[in-house]
Design a protein around this nucleic acid. Structure first.
Length: 415
RNA sequence: GCGGGCGUCGCCAAGUGGUUAAGGCAGCGGCUUGUGGCGCCGCUAUUCGGGGGUUCGAAUCCCCUCGCUCGCCCCA
């Protein structure tokens, strides 16, 4: 019979991994709490149109990576490939923005139909920050700082923050037209992918990894030169703000984010320890998105982090252990009948209690208790069941004392 | 979607055409019917990701397929 297994690119997180993930999630949650960022949870499934309109029809994410299907009502549905569009949709739908600017975070699985690779899965996990209704350049700085500081708090070093400004919509349009005109004259020198993008998404050509294309681009019109004085000023403010915080960054005029909605500040935080999937965090400003999805014009900044990639960087350190505090060991009918009630009482006292239900002899049960890493074993045999005096054994010192069945709460050792 | 590498027990892993597919770890049982962490003994793959083919004979060769992995692409 054929083995049932996970779908391609989908991964089970087993208990060992899960403990590590919980630690990471707790760190993130605490970090957002300190920044007064509130959590928002949106459905995993949305109308396909949300992403098509939000992310951009010409992007790879929408064009070839979405998990879309028709539901029983013939509506086109899509498993969310990213978080921003849903958050903006929710903010509009519930009128959150009429209550003032919102700083929101989200976390959870995202879905992209891509070829799996190290640090890239079809179902993967992101946490993200979305600051809706913030236009000031200081909000760009704050958003980046929140990301940077979280990564620092996680103990990640050797990260590189790359920064760019894509300018205003007008700047970008003017620059794009100029770039397209310039590249069209040299179309034969472009790689095939880039030629394709000339028509669909010309700015993306800038961050092509093709060496020959890069060489050509070094002669092409520069995005930075196309920025209006106001855009340039804004960019300088962001840089100054980061410098004032002591956050190191590298200006990369070729940095163009893949999704359509970005403008002005764009940034990525990368690691050279991840192979081809170097980006740990990516984000920027998306002032036009709310309006594009039917809301009032609203200035926004945000970012998203890939948790699998963080886990890869975190490696095996910080792995919390999850040993029981106590193992309840019992032998004989009357004693065995007490095992669950005793365990329950101890659990109510806040102990992590394992019960040995194997029916093996005391020797075996104790052996397993020792291996479990528990500090204590509570032994119940015929004698204990009769006297009501249970045996409490300290597994690290091998010392035993008795503890009254009716007085567990009072007599349990305080540490 | 395109190229390269790989796929033997829960994990690590030997075996590269010829009798019963090493070994280690983990697990289970025993030595030890009520007291662990050591030690010793035993058990655990009719089967080598799946399907077909070549052959007297295949885990070993060929084809297809699935999956993993690395790079491209893309992105978190």
């Amino acid at each position: 019979m054929e083995q049932l297994q996970t779908l391609r690119g989908m991964v089970d997180l087993l208990p060992e991994a899960t403990a590590h993930w919980q630690w990471l999630e707790a760190m993130a949650r605490e970090h957002f709490r300190r920044a007064c960022v509130h959590e928002i949870r949106t459905p995993l499934l949305e109308a396909t149109d949300l992403f098509a309109r939000g992310i951009g029809e010409a992007t790879d994410v929408v064009g070839k990576e979405m998990y879309s299907f028709l539901d029983r009502g013939e509506r086109s549905c899509t498993l969310r490939p990213e978080g921003t569009a849903s958050v903006v949709r929710a903010a509009i739908q519930h009128g959150l923005l009429s209550q003032g600017p919102q700083k929101l975070w989200y976390g959870g699985p995202m879905f992209r139909y891509e070829r799996p690779q190290g640090g890239r899965q079809r179902q993967f996990h992101q946490i993200g920050l979305e600051c809706l209704g913030f236009a000031d350049s200081r909000s760009d700085v704050e958003a980046i700082a929140i990301a940077w500081d979280l990564l620092q708090a996680l103990g990640l070093t050797n990260l590189q923050l790359e920064l760019n400004s894509l300018g205003s919509q007008d700047d970008r349009r003017a620059y794009r037209d100029g770039l397209v005109a310039w590249l069209q004259e040299r179309q034969d020198q472009l790689d095939a992918d880039s030629q394709q993008r000339l028509a669909t998404n010309p700015l993306r050509i800038l961050d092509s990894k093709h060496p020959q294309t890069q060489e050509l681009l070094s002669l092409a019109p520069n995005l930075e030169d196309a920025l209006s004085p106001a855009s340039r000023e804004r960019y300088e403010q962001v840089k100054a703000g980061l410098s004032a915080l002591g956050i190191p960054f590298l200006c990369n005029p070729r940095l163009v984010r893949g999704l359509d909605y970005y403008g002005h500040t764009a940034f990525e935080i990368t690691s050279d320890a991840l192979g081809a999937q170097a980006t740990v965090c990516g984000g920027g400003r998306y002032d036009g998105l709310v309006e594009q999805l039917g809301g009032a014009p609203t200035a926004c900044v945000g970012w998203a982090m890939g948790l699998e990639r963080l886990m890869l960087l975190l490696g095996q350190e910080n792995k919390p252990t999850s040993s029981p505090d106590v193992v309840v060991v019992s032998q004989g009918d009357r004693a065995e009948a007490l095992a669950v009630p005793v365990a329950r009482q101890l659990r109510q006292l806040g102990q992590a209690v394992e019960i040995d239900l194997s029916g093996s002899g005391f020797g075996k049960q104790l052996k397993r208790a020792g291996k479990s890493g528990a500090r204590w074993a509570v032994l119940i045999g015929e004698e204990e069941a009769t006297s009501g005096q249970l045996q409490l054994k300290d597994l690290s010192s091998s010392e035993s004392r008795s503890i009254a069945l009716g007085q567990l709460a009072e007599e349990w050792p305080r540490l």
